[in-house]
């Protein structure tokens, strides 16, 4: 008798270990692919990532009267509120020339990190129907939520240009440095999304906690005040911690590019290290959890 006959009797499997298929040619269903093959499949799905991100972005606005106009209105209103509170009421603008431009760059760029973080934590749980229906590398989902956040950043940059010009910033070729700065920030946000997507899929309460985390992070990143001015009169480690935190690093680069606030080569290095380090570690961390995302 061959082993196939034994298989047919429903309690077949004398396979010596769970890693050895009971018959040649069989693979374990849902087995995690090696990271190279996984990445190749992810790349094959790039058009799905783009289509899914743009579709979810526009669907987010479909139930409002103003529709896509909110893409531009939301950042404008944000700036108005922050300017009212921090500029006019709390005077955190001390030591900052052209506060409205400083604040706008800070709020828009930091919102990218914030929304990548919050949306990333829901990348699996918010798409669980998709995860339980179709087989594809799950990394598609956090990449797609990060892409949506990036799209929203690009829309707010459209708002930013007139704010800069009206507030008296002269256009300059240096503005082009915003491209590598945002590219590095995107790597960082992507790594962040991978990480919180896996955590969020295991611990549903992550979604409730993250708004607190991101608010603390915002206050520590010099979004609405100058870290240099603040750090005067504090021990030097305060300044070291604040200026090396990724939230601040990417803001500093953007302010350098758009407003001419000086940065050192160290800032670019820190941005590179945070970006590449976070995306590599985050990706591997997410990939290791691949088999469990449907069981959320």
């Amino acid at each position: 008798m061959t082993r196939f006959t034994r298989l047919a009797h429903a309690d077949p499997l004398d396979a010596p270990s769970p890693d050895v298929p009971p018959a040649p040619g069989l693979q374990r269903a849902g087995a995690r692919l090696p990271v190279e093959e996984y990445s190749r499949r992810l790349w094959q799905r790039r058009w799905f990532v783009v289509a899914y991100a743009t579709a979810s972005n526009s669907v987010g606005y479909e139930r409002s009267f103003l529709g896509q106009a909110w893409q531009v209105l939301t950042p404008l209103l944000n700036i108005a509120v922050y300017y009212l509170i921090f500029g006019l009421l709390l005077h955190t603008n001390r030591g900052v020339p052209n506060y409205i431009a400083f604040l706008s760059v800070g709020v828009f760029l930091f919102s990218f990190c914030q929304s990548a973080l919050v949306a990333g934590s829901k990348a699996i749980t918010g798409n669980i129907g998709l995860v339980r229906a179709l087989q594809f590398p799950r990394a598609v989902l956090p990449v797609s939520t990060t892409l949506v956040s990036l799209l929203q950043l690009l829309f707010s940059l459209i708002v930013l240009v007139p704010i800069l010009l009206i507030s008296g910033v002269a256009p300059s070729l240096r503005w082009l440095q915003i491209v590598p700065a945002i590219a590095l920030q995107t790597l960082f946000c992507l790594g962040l999304s991978f990480t919180v997507a896996r955590i969020g899929s295991r611990i549903p309460d992550t979604t409730q906690l993250l708004p607190f985390v991101s608010r603390v992070w915002m206050y520590g990143s010099g979004v609405m005040y100058s870290v240099q001015v603040f750090a005067q009169g504090h021990p030097s480690w305060v300044s070291t911690v604040l200026t090396n935190n990724p939230g601040y690093v990417y803001l500093a680069l953007a302010r350098h590019a758009l407003l001419g606030v000086p940065v050192t080569a160290m800032t670019w290095l820190a941005a590179l290290a945070w970006g590449v380090g976070t995306v590599v570690l985050g990706y591997l961390y997410f990939w290791r959890g691949e088999e469990g995302y449907g069981n959320v």
């Binding site: 009971p22 269903a29 849902g30």
Partner: peptide
């Protein structure tokens, strides 16, 4: 869903030939 590889069994294994 576990045959499709969408949900991992908490015990035991599903083997398939192809997707």
């Amino acid at each position: 869903r576990s045959i499709a590889g969408l949900m991992a069994p908490s015990q035991g294994t599903v083997w398939t030939r192809g997707q």
